[in-house]
Every structure is written in C-alpha cells, then in structure tokens.
Design a protein around this nucleic acid. Structure first.
Length: 141
RNA sequence: ACAGCCAGCCGGUCUGUCGCCGUUGCCGCAAGGCAAAGGAGGAAAGUCCGGGCAGCACAGAGCACUCCACUUCCUAACAGAAAGGCGCCUGCGAAGGCGGAGUAACGCAGAAGAAAAUAACCGCCCCUCAUGCGGGGUAAGGGUGAGAAGGUGGGGUAAGAGCCCACCGGCCGUGCAGCGAUGUACGGGCCGUGUGUCUUGGAGGCUGCAAGUUCAUGUAAACCGGUGUUUGAGGGUUGCUCGCCCAAGCCGGAGGGUAGAACGCUUUAGCAUGUAUGGCGACACACUGCAUAGAUGAAUGACAGACACCCCGCAAGGGGCACAGAACCCGGCUUACAGGCUGACUGUUACA
C-alpha cells in the first residue's frame, strides 16, 4: 500500500488541534461563562460545561483566552496562546478518551491568569493537571 | 584611522520532530486523507491627517461650527513631499531645530514696576544767593519686566529729547531683478511688546468593511415602490433659521430578528538604484520587468540543535541576540527599535 498509511496507525494517536475543535459559538460561550464550573491549576484556569451530542459535534471544544489586561502587547498574548495550544495538543488524549468512555461532551475555556511568561514545559505540566482536575470535578457532581 | 552629519537599505540563516490556515492536484459515497508550492512588518503599532471604496442624505439661501495659513510647485488628496525665501536658536563644521495671513475695534498681561501709552518714583535742570517747601522743564542715568516710547555715536541744550546729522533695524512709496515669498537702489517720515476675541483668504455632507450585497429558515398593523391628499399638529431635510418635502386610503412587493454561509477580500493612485525623455527636484510620461497572507472567538507556530553576530574570559566556557503581530485597501505623519551595511559630506590626526 501507500507508504503514508504507516504514519497514521491507531496505536500512535496524532497530536492535532484542528479548527473544528475550537469553541466559536457565541451562544455557547455566553452560557459557559454564566453557568460553567471553574477549576484552577495556576497559571491556568478552566471553565467548563457539559454538552449533548446535538449541541456539539466534537467531544471537546476548547477556547483559549489571554486577557489584554494581563499582556498589553499582542505579541505576548499570541506567544502565550500558542504555548497553551501546544500544551493542549500534546496532552489531550487521556482527557478525550475518558470523556468518550463516559459518553460525555464538553465545552471548555482555558484562561491564562498569570501576568508573566512561563516556559512551554511548565505550561504542559500544568495543563495535564488541569485536565485531570476537570475529570475529577465533573464526575463528582 | 577615529569621531560625526545627512540620505538610503538590512534587521537573522539552516536542519529535525510535532502542528495550524486557506489554495491547487489526486483518492474517497461521505467524513476525511495524501501531496505540492505558499503563509506578518519597517514600523503590521498609535489611529493623528488625507484619499479610494460602500451605504445613507442632498431644490436653494443665510448664520453657526471645525480645520488650514511665508512662496512656488508635486500629488487622487493631505496638516505630507520637493525647491526656494525671511527671522531666531544650537554646533568649530557637515548640518539640525523652531516660527510665519491681517491688526480696524475690544479685552487681558498677576503679589513686578513711578509709568504698559496723551508715563515723572529717584535723579538732572530752571524759577532762587543758599537750604527746605512749592511750581515748572526733562525720558540721558537708576531699579522692574518677555516688552519701557527705534539702536549706536556725534552735534545741540539750563538739563534734555529724531530737536538735528551719520550709520544700522523696521515701516511706507517708487525703480530694477524674480512666476512669487523676497532681495536691492533711491526718497520719505520718525516707529511699543505678547496674547485672545476678532478680520481676511481657503477647505469641509454624515457614517464607516460589524460599511454594504446575496442566500437560508419564515406569522402580522412595522418596511419598500406606485398612486394620491384638506386643515392643523407632528416628522424629515447637516447644528440653527428661512424655505422645501412627507403623511390617510388603495394597489403591488416583501421585511424585522437570528454574527449561520458566501461575496466584499486582495492586481493596484502597486513596486523597480531597470531604460529613454522632460524637470534643479518631489515627480510626470512611455516601454520593459516583477508581484503568491487573506484569517474572521481570528492561522502564519511550538520545541530541540547547529551556524552567524555582539559582550565577558588567557583558556575551557558563560551570557546576550531589538522594537514588535496583518484585520477593507492605499499615501503620509508620529512613536518604538539590539546590531549591521552602502554612498555623499564635515572635523581632527597621521603618511606621501
């Protein structure tokens, strides 16, 4: 067969974050901030809400937000958002699998609440903890 | 060679792993997958000017409001650029910075000063032999102020003063040069500073791509077009006034709301240290060549390593690598910026 097939074997999940998985709907975002549950793993904070299959096509829809108040320049905001995106992209698999096994769907906003930069490795560690916390908190309720 | 000044340009490169965005091609019923070539700036920034583009408005007149202000010229336009002109300031210099229409009328200019415009506080001179008092003359000297009745010198006088003279500055008139701002020569008279209102000339409809267009779902008295109307209220027309226009009913069409999707959306007032022509120049014009972000809760990356560059160190090595991220598109301005390159020119030193 074609040589590129070996790159996409199911045993090695790909670290992707396509446009589909971005949370965009204004209605959902408004409801999320009004009714959502929040959990913090400093410098990250997540606000999340459960969704039905009718409301949401993907298992997890993510919104990444860095406030202008905390980073004045657009360059800095972009850098932080890109680092958070990389952290989510590379550590989302167990989170998504757990949701899928429980038959749940979620909309999550990830906020950056520090006013200084942190390294990509640090943000990745905190991201893993944040996603664990979301699972823990949502199954208690 | 070092220091400087002006103009222009650059402002990392390569490799690997994992990703994102739209485009094209292939595969797939579809979801999607694979491949290829692309994917932030000189300021993308501030949003301060000027346009293009779009919608709405617009019979006309006046007032008000806002902006501009040396001259000529360039431009689609400008508060921008080019060339030139005057005054002041900084620098040994190359050069740089700042300012500019008018002043008839009115106001203000402080706790300065005697006095801020038909000026007498001290001083000086005369009336008067002397002193004091009183009266008068005087803007040369004193102190105040951003500014003190054009400045300097001489004559003159009781003491003084454009009272007179020379030179200089300003103003007015005439001649000459210049398209012009101005410059210059001669003559005249004898001239207070800043600022605001104001006056003169010029420009200006309003709102901005969340503009706006189309599609989808779809029930009305709300909207649009046509026809049509009497009085008054009312509404619209740019903020106001005059003036002008609108309305009921009937006939026809279909909206509002919902950021759902597509278009607008990137090839143009485009760029060229290419060539020819015109121009001192900005630039114009002709030919030739070159152009590849187009997102929309917002992609253009993250990480690792190597190289280049800079700093510290004898070395091993260590540290640093600017300002900063497109949001309809252009022309400017302003602000930020590690380091580097090129070309004119200036100063100092050295050599021949």
């Amino acid at each position: 067969m074609h040589p590129h097939v070996s790159l996409t074997e199911p045993s090695m999940p790909r670290n992707t974050f396509p446009l589909k998985e971005h949370l965009k709907s204004k209605k959902v975002i408004e409801r999320l901030y009004a009714e959502g549950t929040s959990v913090t793993a400093y410098p990250l904070r997540a606000v999340f809400i459960e969704q039905t299959a009718d409301e949401q096509e993907v298992i997890a829809a993510i919104l990444i937000s860095v406030a202008k108040k905390r980073f004045r320049h657009a360059v800095d905001r972009n850098l932080v958002k890109r680092r958070i995106r990389e952290a989510y992209r590379t550590s989302k698999h167990t989170f998504v699998e757990t949701l899928q096994n429980n038959g749940k769907r979620m909309a999550v906003a990830i906020l950056y609440i520090d006013t200084r930069h942190n390294s990509t490795a640090f943000i990745k560690r905190k991201m893993e903890r944040l996603l664990d916390c979301i699972i823990a908190k949502s199954q208690i309720q």
